[in-house]
Design a binder for these strands. Structure first.
Lengths: 144, 144
DNA sequence: AGACCAGGTCTTGATTGTAGACCATCGAAA
DNA sequence: TTTCGATGGTCTACAATCAAGACCTGGTCT
């Protein structure tokens, strides 16, 4: 199987063509689509911020709470659980008097940092163009 | 400003550290975080599949409908609009007898393919490990 | 006329995300 | 000794979002 490559735009298109054919073959089983699962997780508003925070060093529960502003404890707990379930972070409990719980990225979690940085780089490089497109679109919509 | 680099795991961590400090500086304005906007869009279940479909060639509305299984017309319309608003795809109407509408990636949309392929490659390479982690986690949860 | 297609919009539930209150334990302070 | 705050959560209720399917506006074919 050919490896996915993203050396250049053409390569990206061809790599996608290949994946696309593979997925469309037979009958596109959604459960076999790994992108869906990953993007669902990454897209859920807090995951990325938590991963970024943990990429710096292990955090305790309340450290993450402070590092990620506006997140509720409810959502923090749930997001950490999901991340732990997927093997991206590890949870360790120390039996201190006020219990200490530490969360850290696993090796798998660290391997996610590279694609994530690629995406962040794109986002930062494209944000002005996206903002411009939005303004133009909204202006055109308002006119009509 | 230093460019984000992802040549290696250390680089990824350092690049994130840099971004993280930049964002945390002053008071972390969420609207200034471009990643959030991008991931919200990518994470919304259909966007990625549509972008992948359009990466192969321009599609008509009903072609996309057939290419992306199980999407309702409602969601397809909405997702295409959002994508168009962000300047990632372009919509062109041809005044044929039954009107023909074509959707294609813009240059900006094509530039998204590279980070997307990077992410897909990670997802494909990691899916077995993620599945294993999930099984282990669920087994441990069931035991408790 | 009746049936069909394109390219949508609208209405109406079901699913999911989120906030904020609440809980149990411990140590320190008053 | 009562109260306070911190830690690491859970529970409940509400709101936004998703999705299905009916409906609409042309136009063409038969």
């Amino acid at each position: 199987m050919t490896r996915l490559r993203a050396d250049n735009p053409q390569g990206a298109r061809q790599a996608l063509a290949e994946r696309f054919r593979a997925w469309s073959g037979s009958e596109f089983d959604l459960s076999r689509c790994p992108v869906r699962g990953v993007l669902d997780r990454l897209g859920d508003k807090w995951t990325t911020l938590i991963v970024i925070a943990l990429s710096q060093r292990p955090h305790r529960f309340s450290e993450v709470c402070r590092a990620v502003p506006d997140i509720s404890k409810r959502m923090l707990t749930q997001t950490l659980r999901d991340l732990e379930r997927d093997g991206l972070i590890a949870r360790r409990v120390f039996p201190t008097k006020p219990p200490t719980v530490e969360y850290r990225l696993t090796e798998l979690g660290e391997s996610l940092l590279e694609p994530l940085v690629t995406l962040i780089a794109w986002a930062e490089g494209s944000q002005t163009r996206i903002a411009a497109a939005r303004s133009a679109f909204d202006a055109a919509s308002a006119a009509a």
